[in-house]
Simulated scan of single mutants.
Amino acid sequence: MAGKAGKESKKSKGELAEVLAELASLRREIEALKSPTVAALGATRTAEQVAKRASAFTPVQRARLIEALLQSGPQPPPQLGATVGLATGSLYHHLRELVAAGIATVEDKTYCLTPDGQQLAEALFALPHE
């Protein structure tokens, strides 16, 4: 009889350990939902991908192009060039860089921000001034 009670006790301790581990996992998931950490945001990009996208905001001419697309929506190159004051050659160079970084896309000779580009631009332009 004592042997049977001992087995039940071990089984109960094992089950309790599993329940506690699952509870700890659920607590971590809840905390992740509460705080805006990388894990909570569901980020799956590598550091290289992040750097490529972030570098699209430099030099300042690209940041101005992104700002113009963010504020005014899709635009053809002549309108963008006039808005930010870029000559044709420089304009197309910067637009190609934005497309290559996944920040902008072009369709029917009109440039617009990609969903990722829009989200990143909104976040960066919303940062407080130093």
Rank of each mutant, 00 (worst) to 15 (best):
K11I: 08
A21K: 14
A5C: 01
T46A: 02
K7N: 07
L33K: 11
E107T: 07
I30W: 08
L26D: 12
Q79T: 12
K11P: 00
L41P: 00
A126Y: 02
E122L: 05
T105N: 04
E15C: 04
A24E: 15
K4R: 14
L91N: 02
L86Y: 01
G89E: 12
P74M: 07
A43W: 13
T83E: 09
K4E: 13
P115C: 02
E18F: 03
G6P: 01
E22V: 06
I103K: 00
F125R: 02
G42T: 13
Q49D: 13
A54H: 08
C112D: 10
E122S: 11
R96A: 14
A54N: 08
S90I: 01
V38A: 12
A121Q: 00
A87W: 01
K10P: 00
A56H: 03
A126M: 08
G73E: 09
R62D: 03
T83A: 15
G42S: 11
L91K: 06
E15R: 11
K13P: 01
H93R: 15
Q61Y: 09
Y111I: 02
A39R: 13
V50K: 03
G81W: 02
R62W: 02
K34G: 06
A126E: 13
A5F: 06
A39M: 06
H129G: 03
P36L: 10
R64H: 11
E122F: 01
G102D: 04
T58L: 15
R62Y: 04
L124D: 00
V106F: 00
L41N: 05
G42C: 10
A123P: 00
K52A: 09
H129K: 15
T110P: 00
T105S: 11
A51Q: 08
Y92M: 08
L95S: 03
L23N: 14
A126G: 10
T114W: 02
Q75K: 09
E107V: 07
A104N: 04
T37M: 08
T46H: 05
Q79C: 00
H94V: 06
R45E: 12
E67K: 13
P59L: 03
G3D: 15
P74D: 04
K4Q: 11
A100N: 14
A121N: 02
L95D: 00
E29H: 03
T88A: 07
E8G: 11
L23E: 08
A68C: 12
E31H: 06
V50F: 03
P77K: 07
R96D: 13
A47E: 14
P78C: 10
E97W: 00
P59F: 07
T83V: 05
G6A: 09
L80M: 06
A47H: 10
E18D: 11
Q75W: 01
Q75L: 15
R27G: 02
E107K: 13
A47T: 14
R62F: 04
K13N: 11
K109S: 12
E67W: 03
G14N: 14
H94E: 12
R28H: 13
S12T: 11
T105D: 10
P76E: 14
S25Q: 15
L33N: 09
V38K: 10
Y92Q: 07
E48H: 06
T88F: 06
